[in-house]
Write a protein that binds this DNA or RNA. Structure first.
Length: 264
DNA sequence: ATGGTTGGGGTCCAA
């Protein structure tokens, strides 16, 4: 089974690009974030026509929104709310005996101080709530995947300059530490770093604001795929597909793919 | 230190 995750930054605007990706990469499951549409306007028919009829969508108007589309049957779809908000940042379902959790973690605004910036406070609370939820409701022995735009680049070489980004939201020690607790809670394995050494630069996002994103290459690895220990020995490959950042009208994120030795 | 770009919805907010 191959699972992909992609922050698409409007699924309606980029539906043709996504369909091209599905033809090109042919994942069994695609998890999307920032679909930026209410459920009624989600392009479900286009995905069905492309061979992905099994779908779980949690959208809202204009902001956020997550979805899972699959070639193979998807059961037990459910979405959870966090921090007392109904802002469409989580959806989960079971595919081929694996429970997949798809997250869009709050970006956290600009100021890395929860007392001055309520968006950063929200991000930290969100991380604490999901950590507590998994420790209460799930076990590390259960085969699960956790994917999505987690809006944190935890390792030194998950950003273009560790020193320059220490005070930049997405790479501050406070949120990296929070993310570490989340990961350690169920002994989640970083499926991409499983294949790529920690001292090698790895990015999944490049700002729209850079003059030449490719040349400057000031990226961050904000998009992640984690698996619980029973799936660790089943990991076969992982890939971050950088070329999608260079297409016409690209998302600022690129897809991340992980292949598992699990029959689809 | 500053400003740079994009998307959605509606004349600004979030990233």
């Amino acid at each position: 089974m191959t699972v992909a995750t992609w922050n698409i930054n409007s699924v309606r605007l980029r539906i043709d690009t996504v369909l091209q990706f599905l033809r090109d990469a042919a994942p069994d499951v695609l998890c999307l974030q920032e679909i930026k549409t209410e459920d009624a306007l989600f392009p479900g028919a286009a995905f069905t026509q492309a061979g992905y009829p099994h779908q779980a969508v949690r959208g809202m108007k204009a902001y956020n929104g997550v979805a899972i589309v699959s070639r193979i049957p998807l059961t037990r779809p459910h979405s959870l709310d966090w921090c007392g908000k109904t802002d469409s940042r989580h959806i989960a379902a079971e595919v081929a005996g694996v429970e997949i959790h798809n997250f869009y973690v709050p970006a956290g605004g600009d100021i890395p101080d929860p007392d001055q910036n309520e968006k950063f406070a929200h991000k930290l609370q969100f991380l604490d709530e999901v950590t507590a939820w998994f420790s209460t409701n799930r076990r590390a022995e259960t085969p699960m995947m956790l994917v999505g735009d987690l809006n944190i680049a935890p390792l030194e070489h998950d950003v273009w300059s560790h020193k320059k980004l220490l005070d930049v939201v997405s790479h501050t020690p406070i949120e990296v530490e929070r993310m570490g607790r989340w990961q350690q809670g169920l002994a989640w394995v970083d499926a991409v770093r499983h294949f790529v050494p920690d001292d090698q630069k790895l990015y999944s996002w490049w700002s729209y604001r850079a003059k030449d994103w490719d040349l400057a290459d000031k990226g961050r690895r904000l998009d992640h795929v984690w698996v619980t220990p029973p799936l660790k020995e089943k990991l076969e490959a992982a890939e971050i597909q950088r070329p999608w950042r260079g297409v016409e009208k690209a998302s600022d994120h690129v897809p991340v793919l992980v292949r598992l030795a699990v029959p689809a």
